[in-house]
Each structure stands twice: as C-alpha cells, then as structure tokens.
Design a protein around this nucleic acid. Structure first.
Lengths: 341, 341
DNA sequence: GTTAGCACTCCCGCTCTCTGAGTGCTAAAG
DNA sequence: CTTTAGCACTCAGAGAGCGGGAGTGCTAAC
C-alpha cells in the first residue's frame, strides 16, 4: 500500500503531533503547525481517507484522530526521519561504556538503567542463550568443612556460582580436584561436558563421584533453566512519567507481565525478524498483555552467539529516538563483548 | 504515658480497624464491631481524649479518626498481639530456603521477592558491610590475549569479578600469578591486603606490578564503594495494590527515593536501635521522603558481622504480621550464612 | 480539487445539590 | 459522676445538569 504525497505528509504530521502531545490531533492544529499549504477542510478530507484505509482511528465520533497500529507501522517503515542521538544522550552512553573495570552483570544492570534514562521508557537486555557458551574456568573454593563453592566463568565473562557438598578433605586434595575439573571440563561445548565428566568418574577414585555429579548438575541447570538470569529489565520510575501510565492498574499489569510472564521473551521470539532494529507495535506483539505496548529492539553479538537489547514503551513511542538509541546500544554492547578479535 | 484500660482498647480498635480498611474510623463502627459494651457516644468521648493527647488525628473536622505516628507507636509497643505466621506464609518461606543449591545473590534476590509476596509491601536486604569480609580465593581467568577476569570469593560466599589488563603471558605463567595472589592475599583482613600486596610487588618481578596494582584497586573499591551492590529491594508490583499508592506520583516518589537516594540506608543507621525487630513509623524516620512510610527491620548474622532485612510499607502497615515475617527471615538468613559452626 | 461556512456531536470541566457518615454538645438517665 | 440518647452541624463525595470548546462531516461556492 502506498500513499500519495500529501496523504503521507498528513499521516506523518498526525503521528508526530500525537507522539509529542499524547492527545488526539485535529485538522486545525495540523494546518497551523505543519505548513502543508492547505486548509483544515482539505486536511479533514485526507484524514477521513486515512481513517478509511485504516491508518487512523478516532476515540469518539467527533474528536481528533490518533494513529492506528497500521498507521504507526507505515510511519516507521516509510516516513520516519533518521535522527541521530542528542549530544546529551551520546555523552551519557559514552561515559557508561568508558570505564572498563566493571563486571558483566553490573554492566548489564547499568545499561538497562541508562537505556531507560535516555529513552524514558523501560530498557531491557536478554543475554545470549546459554546453550552456546563454553566454560573458561571451573574452580572449587572451600567454605566450611563439608561445603565448597563451585565457581564457573563462562567464555563471555559471566561468573556463576553454587554451593555444593564435599566430603571432608585437605586443602591440597581440594586443590587437586579443582584443577582436575578445570583441566578436563573447560573450553568444551556444553553438551560434551556431561560425557567428559563421566569419563572422569571412571578414571578418578569413586570418592569424587559426588562432586562431579553436582558439578554436572549445576552446568546442566545453567543451560536448562533457560531463564537463568538472562533477562535484565530496568527503569520503572521513568515509565511512570508517561501519561499512559497515569493509572496504577496499567502499571501493575505491565510490571507483572514483565516480571513473571516472560512476555518479553515471547515477543522477541515471535515473528520474522526483518531488519535491525526490529519494531513491534501494539497488537503486532501476539501477546495479549502487550497489545498497547511497543518494542524496539536489536541484537548484539557475543562471540559466536548474540543477545538482544531493546526498549519497551507505550504504543505512542518516540520511535525515531528509540531506533537511534537501540542502534547505539547494539554497537556498544557488541564492542564490549568482542573487544579485540 | 500510660492509658486506662478502656482508652487502650479504643485505641487498639481504631488502629486495627484502620489497618484493615484504610479508612478513617468512626465511633459507631467500633461500638458495633468491637464489643466494648459501651455506646458510640462514650467511645466518641474517649476518642476525643485520645485525640487531645495526640494518639489520634482527624482528616477533617467531621470524619472519623486515624492513628497518628504516636498512636501507632503506642500500639506497637503496648497493644499489638504477637501473631505467628500463617501456615501459607511459613510454607512459602520454608520452600525458599529448602533448596540449598543457590548462589548468594540469587538467594537474596529471591528472598526480597518472597518478603514482598508474603507481606504485600516492599522487601529489602542490606548486605553486611564489606569492611569486615575477608577473601577466600583470588583467581585470574584469561579471557583474551591481554585481558583476564579477576574473580574473588569472599568468606560469606559472594563472588565478585572485574576484568583487568594483563601483559601477554603463557597459560602457565598466568596460573603462577593467580596462585601467588591467591596464596598471599587470601584470608587476610581487608586493611592488611594492600600492605601484603606491596610486599609481593618487591618480591616478584616488576612485570607483575600492573596486575597487583589492579587487584589492590579492585579490592579497595569493594570496600570503599560501600554501596557496592549491598542493597536488594524488590516487590514494586505488590506495593501497587496498596490503596495509598493509587496515585502514581506517590509511587514515583517512593521508587526514586529507594532507588537513588539511599533512603533506606539513612533510615537504618539513624536512631537508637532498641529491640529487634526495629520499627520506624512515619516521621520517626528522620528522612523527609519517608514521612508517610514505615519500616520494620532486623538484623541477621553473617559470620562475625551482620546484615539487615526488613519491610518497607505505608504507615498504615500490618505491623503485627510484619514483625512475625521479619523475625522469620532474620532466623532463616542467619542460618543460611552460619550453617554448621 | 479546494475551501468557507455551518450544523451537529460529544468530551470535559464546572457548579450545585444532596446524601450520609461522622462529630460535639447538651440534657436526661443511671 | 459516668453514660447515653438526641440533635444540630460539618464536610467529603457522588451525581446531575449545564455550557464551552474542539472537533467533525456535509454542502455549496470558488
């Protein structure tokens, strides 16, 4: 579906005006504020046409128009300007990524907070799928007589840990076990770890069966619990300044959806992912809870695999800015995770 | 200040009724619902007295009374029943602490969520002060040619990490450095670490100066940034069901206070900490942002030091239940952190 | 095709009123 | 002297009613 120039201009004007004010927009405002060189009456006619083909909606019989999902879609596909970042924003982002002395988890947390701060919507990051990681180091730290902490570092710098039970043993023996595990299980693809571990079981004394078992269980749980701490979301406070969330019920719905239901994951998976950044508007998200929400997101590379980073906000989102922000964060995160190779 | 029996009963009735309904409570309701054996008129007189001595307030000249801060204070000190936990709640808590295969950070996160779920207010945990921790293990994991991940395990099971720059070196050499650091810097009180590290500097080749420097910096930063990830807060969604947070502005104020200002820390430090659990009601918190909030919190022991766990909610809080919950969480967390000694 | 003019619609904010829950006071009863 | 019934009074909150204003669609003229 294509539109003649003037219709396109009217649609653009309605969308941008609505994004800015949040109110239904009428023909007068457009005639006055956007210099299209025609009278309100003409614009009214165009708007009636745009409504007929499904790009605009009315809230009631006689008030201004608001864009429909399809209207927004046409806008983002065809009309949206390619704005850069404001210098304030790029400054904020630069300083976030400047200090490299930061562990992965803190970085991701601070990143979602920064996404939210610059966009005024909700920021989120979905870490890379755990199936694709390998382990760089496996380490056993004694904590008490019969317990030790299993510490694992993945190739992308995540540190996972888990307390396990160990038979009483000397410091040296523990060190030996730790080294053996580390030597034999690191830098393996995950699916091979279990096999290799069972070889160890045969080689080493039966004494260590218990430990190896727990290690394998833990490694498996990292892969299986695919939700294992992969999703970072932040910026509720900023979202509350948006007029669409003046009503607490809305906020509650949104938060419970995000927190528990894995709505974000569902949305990210669905649909053919055309071009980066991806944009999902309102009901395009096939998840009922997200019918009034939009997402703008893209992926960043982490070694051979990738994660997702994006913005979740009301349908009336500043898509142009959101796209610019997501692009920037994709780039920065890719850099962070693939520094010098 | 002490109260004759009937006044105390009236105060208790007002407080409990108000906690339950959230509305100003009138003399009729009390006469009908709480069997005090006197007429509304008598209760009106008692209420007038209670207002005069500052235990009750009115929202406007002619509607029921609500408890003042001092009224709540008298209630929690003298009148509050010592309720146990509902079997539902203790069941939820039990199952949280049953599975021991969980790292510290996940446990703390899930705990604040559970506190919120059972109390319907905000749950928080403030980890032990970092000055008192010692390090159990220091470990260097190579991540690329010139970078490595420094992984540190503290005596209470926290795992901290930080990427550092290293000169190119062989696997064996890295292992050697890692072992040397670990051997020399672990199980020391933090303040001694720097001294010890500088001894190392002299002993080992100048080559490692850079690494040792970064390790010391990081260890120091863990202590100095006293806010370093010590505070866990959770349960915004649950808070939104409370009628006092029907207004988004309130929620916004609260969240920004909690997120950025360190209001909780400020409150926890202030004031003589009489008996455990501590209760701070409304303006008793000398922090302006918390003038309509109450906190119920206590401490749990972590080895030789301690952390704090508590509930943050509106002044109209179910104190009795909050106290029971905090007690339970104190106990469970103490057990978790001091398992078998 | 465009635009001015006009009748019509309907949301929104305003005031006004009414109701009901609650109070304080007074005077009678216990 | 304490308790209670009765009563006048207060005030928040819910509705009803009433413009005003922003907007529309339609028609007729340019």
């Amino acid at each position: 579906m294509t539109l003649d120039d003037r219709k396109a201009e009217v649609l653009r004007a309605v969308v941008e005006e609505h994004i800015e004010t949040g109110l239904p927009v009428g023909s007068r405002v457009i005639a006055r504020r956007y210099r299209l060189g025609v009278s309100p009456a003409t614009i009214r006619n165009e708007m009636a046409d745009l409504e007929e083909i499904g790009y605009l909606d009315k809230t009631h019989t006689s008030s201004g128009r608001i864009p429909s999902d399809r209207g927004y879609r046409f806008y983002v596909d065809e009309l949206m300007p390619n704005r850069g970042l404001s210098s304030d924003d790029s400054h904020i982002i630069e300083s976030l990524f400047r200090s490299r002395v930061k562990d992965v988890v803190s970085l991701l947390k601070e990143t979602v907070r920064t996404i939210s701060e610059t966009s005024r919507y909700l920021g989120f990051i979905l870490g890379p799928e755990s199936e694709t990681v390998t382990y760089k180091s496996i380490h056993l730290v004694p904590t008490s007589r019969e317990r030790a902490l299993l510490v694992i570092v993945t190739d992308i710098g995540f540190v996972e840990s888990c307390p396990i039970e160990v038979p009483p043993m000397s410091r040296e023996e523990m060190q030996h076990v730790s080294d053996t595990l580390s030597r034999n299980l690191t830098n393996l693809a995950v699916e091979k770890v279990a096999d290799r571990a069972y070889e160890l079981l045969r080689e080493e004394a039966h004494r260590y069966a218990r430990i190896v078992g727990q290690v394998v269980d833990f490694l498996n749980s990292l892969v299986t619990d695919s939700e294992h701490e992969r999703l970072y979301v932040g910026g509720t406070v900023n979202l509350l300044s948006q007029p669409e969330f003046r009503d607490v019920e809305r906020v509650k719905d949104l938060l419970s959806a995000v927190e528990s239901e894995g709505v974000i994951q569902a949305v990210l998976i669905k649909g053919d992912q055309d071009k980066d950044p991806f944009i999902r508007i309102g009901r395009e998200n096939e998840v009922a809870a997200a019918k009034d929400l939009s997402l703008v997101f893209g992926s960043f590379s982490v070694g051979r695999t990738e994660g997702k980073v994006g913005i979740l906000g009301p349908r009336r989102m500043d898509y142009s800015k959101a796209v610019a922000l997501v692009r920037q964060f994709e780039m920065k995160l890719s850099q962070y995770f693939s520094p010098d190779e």
